[in-house]
Design a protein around this nucleic acid. Structure first.
Lengths: 351, 351
DNA sequence: ATCACACATGGGAGCGCTCCCACCCTACCC
DNA sequence: GGGTAGGGTGGGAGCGCTCCCATGTGTGAT
């Protein structure tokens, strides 16, 4: 903004050629300066930069993409039908982190929704056409074919949350196991003995790991794991309600509940209240995610915080590194990063 | 996916030329088919479509953008530093709506963060380079220079939430005035008489309109507007707390509070509770936004719902129409749309 | 002075597409 | 039978850039 922009022929934006003419150099030289090549003399560089500034030159991405066969953009793929995804701040936070990481680069962020079958197909096409330099996969299901497609197309990709213990793609995850352990250890420390858990969908690896952490904590404390104290949820509030009802029926003597997500904890709380159980006096409650819900619940919910924005940032860093890495995919595969970020227990009044 | 893709020269993706060769037609004809031109015989069209399918041809966007001078993508501009933006589901919901609207097209969605000064500058550059066909502006401040820049560059743009009564850009907003009226009418209907309000930042037009609605409802009911019952907040929880403290000091006899956002209502609730006021027995509380917080608050918060996802969808539709509109900007200006979507009061236990 | 070589530079050759003009062929009309 | 539309079609001319090769130009070694 600011000074007027002298134009080329037809009022369009200035081109490389025009910058070259103004600076009294060739097209190639300007290109070198724009792209930070070292093979330009200091003097020439200065002249070109001046011309660029004077004309307000901005490279044409389309032309660059066509000629160089790269797009300077990455895609975040969102499995849209998962309304859970949009109802939790997870999405915003990841995107926030990605945005932060991208701010230092001139990469652009493309948002893609792989919702229905049609979108999925057109997404596959889109990716096949190599219209992005890399892909960030957010909350992918175990049976999603997308990751394999990406691998086959040799498109750099990073996934949020591993799909299994041996995730072939680069991934960034939070330490679900340690988070769950911390939550249960905390409950044990407060003297709770009949600690139940409400799990998320177990085909989500993270949910499984939270359950593992719960069991591990109990086992280490010398508590026998009572299957009656485990109820399956599905990450929804309604699922939390159902699971809590079940638990109460099976083990009316329970004195603590570790829920695999805050939303499920909220559902559980309703049932507990209706059953006349006071929180935390009769039953302590701990959630997972530390979302806004946790802070505003009554009583405020103790919850395991995941560094979601940081996950987004890290995913982006890893992806950018993969894109920049000149080594062939085969060599790279050996070093595919599996990053696990620490979780943290946030104690509030519910426990 | 599926069948193997025969390749052109060097293992790359097939080009228009190759499709043409295979179908036994010229390049122009294939282009016409791809772009749905009617000037192709039925017979030829079929042959081309078969060749396209066989080769798994996907047009190269970069080449198309370069040749046709359009990008088939729109940008959503997010004023990132507003952390409020990320802490509320507003963002996700808008994006969700935009995604839905875009699913029917082959437009791509670009997410841009106009946070710091540097990002702002590079965004201006980005837009100047016409790297998107249109822009969706989300929650823009009254003094933001971006809208003017867009208008000057003649880039189609739609803004969420008008900046003033005579917004020059196309805009989509929710009916803040009617929403506030409904909330206050509801409180009046429940017999509340000393109804206070906590406003958002009044340089946000929507916050002003909510205040207007509050006043209008009281005036129409024959209540004198008592300035002591109006406190300024800033959309934050802390702001809500401060405002509530003020109100309680000024008018200890108040029996209802209409907050300009759920988050501020949450802050107010804390103060009310600390002051020993029961909700809704002593003081009724109504929020605005109907966010997740409202449902999980204790007691659940009555709140004015905004159709945020629908706003995103509508913004996109309007933008696509503007992009498709062949009329010059001058002619279009006369018909710039100002769409206002209805709000709805969601009654819960807090009132 | 001569040769070799590195570095700086200019510009041709595309990248894959759209736009548009020229061409051809088939009615159809006089 | 010749003339005239007009729909179908082919392909040239770019779009603005990067890549790379060819061409200087200056330096140090011989």
């Amino acid at each position: 903004m600011g000074s007027g922009q002298p134009r080329g022929r037809s009022g369009g934006r200035p081109t490389l050629e025009e910058v070259a003419a103004r600076a009294g150099v060739g097209r190639g030289t300007v290109s070198r300066v724009i792209n930070g090549s070292p093979r330009v003399s200091e003097h020439t560089r200065a002249a070109v930069e001046e011309a660029v500034a004077e004309l307000g030159y901005v490279p044409n991405t389309a032309a660059r993409a066509l000629a160089a066969n790269r797009t300077d953009s990455i895609a975040v793929v969102v499995p849209e039908p998962e309304s859970r995804f949009f109802s939790e701040p997870y999405f915003s936070d990841i995107i926030h982190g990605v945005g932060t990481a991208l701010a230092d680069t001139d990469m652009q962020l493309l948002l893609t929704f792989a919702g229905g079958d049609r979108e999925r197909r057109s997404l596959a096409q889109y990716l096949s056409a190599h219209r992005v330099d890399g892909v960030l996969l957010v909350s992918v299901h175990a049976d999603d074919p997308l990751p394999d497609l990406l691998q086959q197309l040799e498109i750099p990709a990073v996934i949020s949350g591993r799909r299994s213990a041996d995730e072939p793609l680069a991934s960034v995850d939070s330490d679900n196991f340690a988070g769950a352990r911390a939550a249960v250890d905390h409950l044990l420390g407060r003297g709770r003995r009949a600690i139940a858990t409400i799990t998320g969908r177990l085909d989500v690896y993270g949910a499984q790991r939270r359950l593992d952490g719960y069991r591990d904590a109990l086992a280490e404390a010398g508590h026998p794991v009572d299957e009656a104290l485990t109820a399956l949820g599905d990450f929804t509030e309604e699922g939390g309600r159902r699971a809590m009802t079940e638990l109460l029926a099976r083990r009316p003597d329970l004195d603590a509940v570790f829920a695999g997500s805050d939303v499920m904890a909220a559902g559980a709380r309703q049932v507990l209240r209706e059953a006349g159980r006071r929180i935390p006096d009769d039953v302590a409650l701990v959630g997972f995610d530390d979302s806004a819900i946790a802070r505003h619940m009554d009583p405020p919910l103790t919850s395991v915080r995941q560094p979601i924005a940081e996950m987004g940032r890290t995913m982006t860093d890893v992806l950018l590194a993969e894109i920049a890495d000149p080594r062939p995919a085969v060599a790279r595969r050996l070093t595919r990063q599996q990053i696990v970020l620490p979780t943290e227990l946030v104690c509030r009044a519910s426990s």
